[in-house]
Amino acid sequence: MTHLTWGLQGKTVIVTGGAGAIGRAVCEGFAEAGARVAVVDLSQEACDRTAADLGEGHAGFAANLREVSRLPDLVARIESTLGLPTVLVNVAGIILRNPDLLAVTEAEWDAQHDVNLKALFFLCQAFAARLVATGTPGSIVNYSSQGWMSGGFGGSVVYNATKGAVTTMTRGMARSWAARGIRVNGVAPGLVETPMLVNADTTPEQVAALEASIPLGRLGQPADHVGATVFLASDMAAYMTGAMVNVSGGFLMY
């Protein structure tokens, strides 16, 4: 008996936010595991560039995920190009930091909820509908955040409200679709060195303070999330569903 196999060779995997920092690393991991990767992001140029860097057999698909009525068409376009997708990884997300909760606007609320939560739900729905229609098992990996449990900081309260909802929804989907052979799990990153956390306005002192809050002593890197993501999507996690895997260097422990 073979115990250690990804079981991803030749499978079609959708990765949203695939041209971003973590998303690109995740795309690379699935390509290494032998999957065909559908890179989904806002810019067709960025999607195509990422797909080309992965090598042959991958493709880019530009999409505004907030246009939820077009998400079934996105899944259909991917299927017609790369074959029926059986893995969906929802990495795409936005954060609009506002440290003053008294000043948060409806537009800030709506933008984060539309991308981080509403779009994620309806893309999962469109993806799962194709699997159910064809009697095909599959796997979903939703990206949450350590903030689903901590509540967030530095103006990320609304963002982390969406991530708390993603965690809850992941569990609900796992229960709802288990009988259909669709597993649903999640990854909760901690403090990751991407433009969402560290940018031109971030001082070395601020970075040092962030690093000091992490037991492993460093910020996470995009590549740190590849193993957990590919594992959850793979046959090696065949008996896992409804799990939220904490990848935070010990920043959050539960």
Rank of each mutant, 00 (worst) to 15 (best):
152 G>W: 03
154 G>L: 10
155 G>P: 03
155 G>N: 12
155 G>L: 09
155 G>R: 11
156 S>A: 14
156 S>F: 04
157 V>K: 05
158 V>G: 08
159 Y>R: 13
160 N>E: 10
161 A>T: 15
162 T>K: 13
162 T>Q: 07
163 K>N: 04
164 G>P: 03
165 A>L: 03
165 A>R: 02
167 T>H: 08
167 T>W: 11
168 T>A: 13
168 T>P: 00
169 M>Q: 06
170 T>P: 01
171 R>Y: 01
172 G>E: 11
172 G>N: 14
172 G>I: 00
172 G>H: 02
174 A>F: 04
175 R>S: 14
176 S>M: 14
178 A>I: 05
178 A>K: 01
179 A>Q: 10
180 R>A: 15
183 R>A: 15
184 V>K: 00
184 V>M: 04
185 N>I: 11
185 N>F: 15
185 N>A: 12
187 V>Y: 04
188 A>C: 12
189 P>Y: 00
189 P>A: 10
190 G>Y: 05
190 G>W: 10
192 V>W: 06
193 E>W: 14
193 E>N: 15
195 P>N: 08
199 N>D: 15
201 D>F: 01
201 D>T: 14
201 D>H: 12
202 T>H: 05
203 T>C: 13
204 P>W: 12
204 P>E: 09
205 E>R: 12
207 V>M: 13
207 V>Q: 02
207 V>A: 04
208 A>K: 02
210 L>S: 07
215 P>T: 06
216 L>Q: 10
217 G>P: 05
217 G>F: 03
218 R>L: 13
220 G>Q: 03
220 G>P: 05
